[in-house]
Amino acid sequence: MTNSVQTYDNQSEKPRKRRRASARQRSEWRDGYMLVAPALILFVLLVVYPMFNTIYLSFFNYGLTDARIRFIGANNFIELMGDEVFWRALRNNLTILIVSVIVQVGVGLILAALIDRGIRWGKSIARTLNFVPVVMSAVAVAILWQLIYDPTVGLANRFVSLIGLDPPSQGWLGDPRIVIYSILVVACWQYTGYVMIIILAGMQSVSQELYEAAAIDGATEIQKFFSITLPSIRNVNIAVILITMIGAVKVFDLVYILTRGGPANASQVMGTYIYYNAFTVNRAGYASAISVVLLVFALILGFLQLRLSVRPREAA
């Protein structure tokens, strides 16, 4: 510090001022670091370090109860490429992602539009009731739906009989061809209200004058929806789609409680397959390799969401 001050010319005033300013600045810096430190230390120890540790462990043959770990290079990843269950899990995540985006965002958008502009009475009660599943724990939701899906006396069977269809003979969660869709029904039931709430908040900030002007021009409600509402909440829609996609990549609780990934791995997703390998069959190294794949997907989606959320605010 003192060295750099001496390089200034002979005007004795200048370095002094600088030194004084920098002393105050340094005490301010110290305050900043002190305040950030607790969060930063916890975060680095319990999130950042484990993340790199996962990447490291993915190159080892290692189980949680093993005393030693053995470096095996990229073998876990090579095995992964030929592992049918892994591909099934990945495909299931993708199915969940696509169906969730279409159903949750589609229904959430329509529902929000109807609540926002279609009805006058009961707005807040409709909003609240549709949101209740969101605050329930996924474990409670999954157990509740396990009873609803009961193959002999469940409500789901009664419901389809009521509309004149036959319930699936192997049960809603026992048939490998439909199990992932049965889980999706539960996921959509739980999270559509979440999408609806966020979109509805976006819609409520659209200027009423736009609608009034359109009404003078004789626009119908449907025309207003496509030419005013949708363009005005474009960013909200993109954010909601990304949030839904991130949720689909992360899904674990619902699948774990409803099926444990079964029957015969038919409903395995990356989250449950990681858990299965690490904690059921003692292959933590292999689980770490799956985790790295999941991490890549999650980071890409997270990065997209951050760009979306940080940019406008910094510009503003």
Partner: peptide, 21 residues
């Protein structure tokens, strides 16, 4: 940026290291 980027990390990807630590 480091702190808020962390929200993208699914907890399932760090279960093994957390368990070890």
């Amino acid at each position: 940026l480091l702190l808020i980027a962390g929200f993208a990390i699914p907890v399932h990807t760090v279960l093994v290291p957390l368990y070890r630590s």
